[in-house]
Design a protein around this nucleic acid. Structure first.
Lengths: 189, 189
DNA sequence: TAATATAGTAAACGATCGTTTACTTTTCAA
DNA sequence: TTGAAAAGTAAACGATCGTTTACTATATTA
């Protein structure tokens, strides 16, 4: 069963995203999967290996997703340099698509919450969180607005991204989460 | 030395805000204070008691701070019902003051980061995080904008608060954190 | 100053941690 | 059909966890 390795990854991510890495034990992971702890080591070298596999998996997903959509990849670092070609409407459409991705996609959503809980534990995790959800996005948008001849690109990027960032958190506790993408689109347009 | 009890509280909060509650051991706390673990139990019943004392302390701080400023208290729950009397300029001034509080005040800033790391672990912590930094603030501002005759009070509250919320996180990793209060004021005005 | 709380130390408790070992079951190609 | 690789179990390893105990040092006060 090659399925088990995948189940371990997604179940671990689920637990990490709720309680944080340190608060989750190998017994928790194994127990939730209905197997014993020893079985975990047939698929991963240890707890740390599971965690790092999650990071690598998200990186893959992000790269594949970006290639498929012809859009900037993780943290918007490899964004196309042709900023001018993106209209406001296109930017909004792309942004809504990213919002749906980080909220509706189970893996991406759990990964985002996990990174939120790990961001202060080490410089590496802090940098990764900022790349995905902080400065990385802000810097990309600032460049984009600057290239489009905006007077105050920094403020424009902030005004554009801040609602996105707040809604990511609000989505997790929302009564009607499905409405948030529409509300965001209305605000950005 | 009554000082020790206070040192335990602030050192614990510092560690909790960096690593999360579960990842911090009593040995860590004692070690960073230069005392042994047993000494901690002369001041607190246990690890849980330290954590809950931090929550109570923040509640006290918040209530005192609100009384002193004649402003709404924790989560803006006990806000004065006379929304109309607050002008935009006053609202901005108050908001900047709150921003400085949650970033520059050492206890409040660490508490905010701690709550960020604990928000998904239990419904109680989730509710507390939302009260301080999520729906609690958004609901208060929505009511305020509605009473002021705003067409779309929900969007207005979102547009107003979202930069605040994003800057709280950006402040922690900023090269020049002192500029953020001014940048926020410029954006809100 | 002597009596007495108070604050701190050192060591140990049982429980749980991540991990390893020895062994059994299952899968699947030769 | 058979035999080896892969996947799983049960139990134990040493380390660390929160907490307790027995004892010592330090203030405070009558």
């Amino acid at each position: 069963m090659e399925k088990t390795k995948e189940k371990i990854l997604s179940e671990s991510l689920k637990l990490f995203s709720e309680n944080g890495y340190e608060a989750v034990s190998m017994r928790d992971i194994a127990g939730n999967l209905g197997i014993t702890q020893g079985a975990l080591y047939r698929h991963y070298a240890g707890k740390r290996d599971i965690f790092e596999s999650i990071l690598r998996r998200m990186e893959e997903y992000d790269r594949e997703y970006a290639e498929h959509c012809h859009l900037p990849t993780v943290g918007y670092a490899d964004a196309p340099k042709s900023y001018r070609e993106i209209s406001r409407a296109e930017l909004v459409r792309f942004t809504i698509e990213m919002f749906r991705h980080w909220t509706e996609n189970e893996f991406a959503s759990a990964f985002r919450r996990m990174l939120t809980l790990e961001q202060y534990r080490s410089p590496e995790m802090g940098a990764l969180y900022q790349q995905y959800f902080g400065r990385g996005v802000l810097c990309y948008l600032t460049d984009l607005f600057r290239e489009n001849g905006c007077d105050d690109p920094e403020s424009a990027a902030l005004q554009f991204y801040a609602p996105f960032y707040l809604f990511l958190n609000q989505y997790d506790v929302a009564d009607a989460p499905s409405e948030y993408a529409c509300r965001l689109e209305r605000i950005l347009s």
